[in-house]
Write a protein that binds this DNA or RNA. Structure first.
Lengths: 205, 205
DNA sequence: CAGTAAAATGACTACCCAGTCATTTTATCG
DNA sequence: CGATAAAATGACTGGGTAGTCATTTTACTG
């Protein structure tokens, strides 16, 4: 009997899916898609393997759920913070900052994200497209900012879509470097570095 | 009996290793490390599976050989072309251009390269280090250029190591976009775009 | 051409793992 | 407290593959 919008069953389902997702995120991050086994994910979530299949259709489905949810959360956070800034400069800086901080906080997720990027070429077209759409969605937040800047002559006339992807690449690159231990400076220093490079690179003369 | 520096055996070994590497490169690029089977690699090289193991210790060994040789060849090509340029501007442009063209010509290799990048986090430390060294080696070519530019006041005072990695990331990003079909322009247009962004970003005021 | 060594073969072993489903455990309710 | 349904279990199946090695093929040599 539905009492407060959610039936008992719905609550349980939500709980199990959450626990499984959390366990899966850690294992996929640690071992990669192939290295993480459904058995281990079940174990980590404190259930038996069969139970996993009561909540997710397949191993891939869990993987996708983890990836999709992570990207969606990131986009939301980025969008909110960008909207909160007044100036174009502030907005672009926020875009870089929030992404960097989000990944710094969610290292597990970033590892999955990056790994998916690497497999993009070997996946079937349809999966590649799905990931591409997800990735492009966050780039488009930035693209809109750049377009606005170009219109207002604050930014020189560049290809906004390409520039947005380039800035995303730079951000992703810095995060990778940080996770691999190649970056010696602090987060602030890294943010400042990228932002300076980008801003000087795109600002109107 | 060694006649011309190489024994019959050495020639055969070299030939087989080459054939296998070529076949492996294609398959790894197409299917990824897990998707490519030793059987298929052997097939593609026109030998039986057992023969593969006469020339390579393991599947991983073939993979590494393909990756290492590809990166080494790229570095060599980049270094040569960079050296051939006179100006700092020309050298930096050459760095970007040659990498882009090299990968454009060796798409198979790039797919392996990128995929390795994605798996960097899930590999054992020792393998990760090995790949890192390889990657950093090419970044150091650029780093040396930047340092020289900073010394000569042509480039503003920035962290040369971080900037070198950032420019590498940008280049890698563009190549990825091209391979995924996200980049609409031609190669020249992409090169010009990155170079402009970078040059304006790092040039002395 | 026979005999020997080098090279190649592919059937086989040993292992791994996604996904299933008959069975057991737990919750619900009259 | 049974009876019934919902949820969970884990042994099992089917498919797959890295790496081995006894056997066969090919090349070389006297």
């Amino acid at each position: 009997m539905p009492v407060l919008g959610k039936t008992r069953k719905e609550v349980l389902t939500e709980f199990r899916m959450e626990e499984l997702l959390e366990a899966a995120r850690k294992l996929f991050a640690e071992k990669g898609f192939h290295g993480a086994t459904v058995d281990k994910i079940a174990d980590a979530a404190g259930v038996a393997k069969g139970t996993v299949y009561l909540y997710y259709r397949s191993k891939r489905a869990i993987y996708w759920a983890a990836l999709e949810r992570g990207i969606a959360a990131m986009i939301e956070e980025v969008q909110t913070q960008v909207d909160a800034e007044e100036t174009l400069e502030g907005k672009i800086r926020a875009f870089i900052t929030i992404k960097l901080c989000y990944f710094e906080r969610n290292r597990d997720f970033f590892k999955i994200y990056i790994s998916e990027f690497g497999s993009a070429f070997t996946h079937p077209v349809q999966i590649r497209k799905r990931f591409g759409d997800l990735y492009l969605r966050q780039a488009r937040v930035l693209e809109a900012l750049l377009r606005e800047g170009i219109k207002r002559k604050a930014i020189r006339s560049i290809r906004a879509d390409t520039a947005a992807l380039a800035i995303s690449d730079l951000t992703r690159g810095i995060i990778t470097q940080r996770l691999l231990g190649w970056s010696k400076g602090g987060v602030e220093s890294d943010i400042r570095f990228i932002f300076d490079l980008v801003w000087k690179g795109i600002a109107a003369p």
